[in-house]
Design a binder for these strands. Sequence first.
DNA 1: AAATCTGGTTGCTTTATAGGACTATATTTG
DNA 2: CAAATATAGTCCTATAAAGCAACCAGATTT
Lengths: 154, 154
Amino acid sequence: MAKKRFHDMGCSVARALDEVGDWWSLLVVKEAMMGTRRYVDFQAHLGIAKNVLCDRLSRLVENGVMVREDVGEHGTRYEYRLTEKGRDLFTVVTALRQWSERWHPRCDSLQLVDREAGAPLATVQVCDSRGRPLTVRDVRFVEVGEEDADGLVG
Amino acid sequence: MAKKRFHDMGCSVARALDEVGDWWSLLVVKEAMMGTRRYVDFQAHLGIAKNVLCDRLSRLVENGVMVREDVGEHGTRYEYRLTEKGRDLFTVVTALRQWSERWHPRCDSLQLVDREAGAPLATVQVCDSRGRPLTVRDVRFVEVGEEDADGLVG
DNA sequence: AAATCTGGTTGCTTTATAGGACTATATTTG
DNA sequence: CAAATATAGTCCTATAAAGCAACCAGATTT
């Protein structure tokens, strides 16, 4: 009767969600991407309960998405920072952000721009090997080593 | 003491996760993207509890991510299908899939290929307005209407 | 007529989450 | 020097959500 976990479902999407699909997890990652590093700041900015924050940070550290570093020059002080693996979730978070902006406009006052030019980012898209955009209807799922056809989606 | 929802946090990522960030929600969407349409099939393929599946499907329909269609030619029969909004989550799901494949190789036997060429997809990336790949360290978050600087991430 | 299929609902148990009180160490303030 | 503040938690309790099995109702198949 324990909460079902997804890591053993033989599906990479499930495996990913097992690590970052909990309530709050991706928001903690997103907050870290905005520069937040300290426990109290995560707590204040997100409005998350302290014990839940504790649990999420621990799990993210366990899974190699973040690291906890002692920076206690003055007093008890730690920093939670994204690892390479964590920073690599930028695509996921940005895809979510853009999806949200397309379907619920004006719910956010923040905009992402590239640091160099100050211009808005391009839309994240799934593309084929030659860079042409694809929808879910343009793809097939094949067993590695086998051929497999399936119908249209939607 | 009710579960905290994210829709009113003034953050588009939070808003997105409020709709599809529940345990199981994105897996249901992913399953639909693979062609599954019927209640019993979602249940069998995912191994999700029936009442939870009920709740997730209802919420996805409420939020316009899926639709429930009566196709009861023979007996009680409905189909749950993705809407345009739901299909638009393809980028998010694919980004998650690719992230997972990078960080936990060989946990899935399925591969996505484009229907036309049969070739694997390109890697989903965040790019600037001219198509050059960006990491989270290459972006800034600005208040719309204002300028705002922030430090490096990670 | 009985069994099966489909799409649920209900009740029960376990786990998660929210919120507040509390702690321990270290630092800053008066 | 004493008191207040800061940081990073832990512990406890109440409510909500998840998992599981049993049950149900209409329609179809056997």
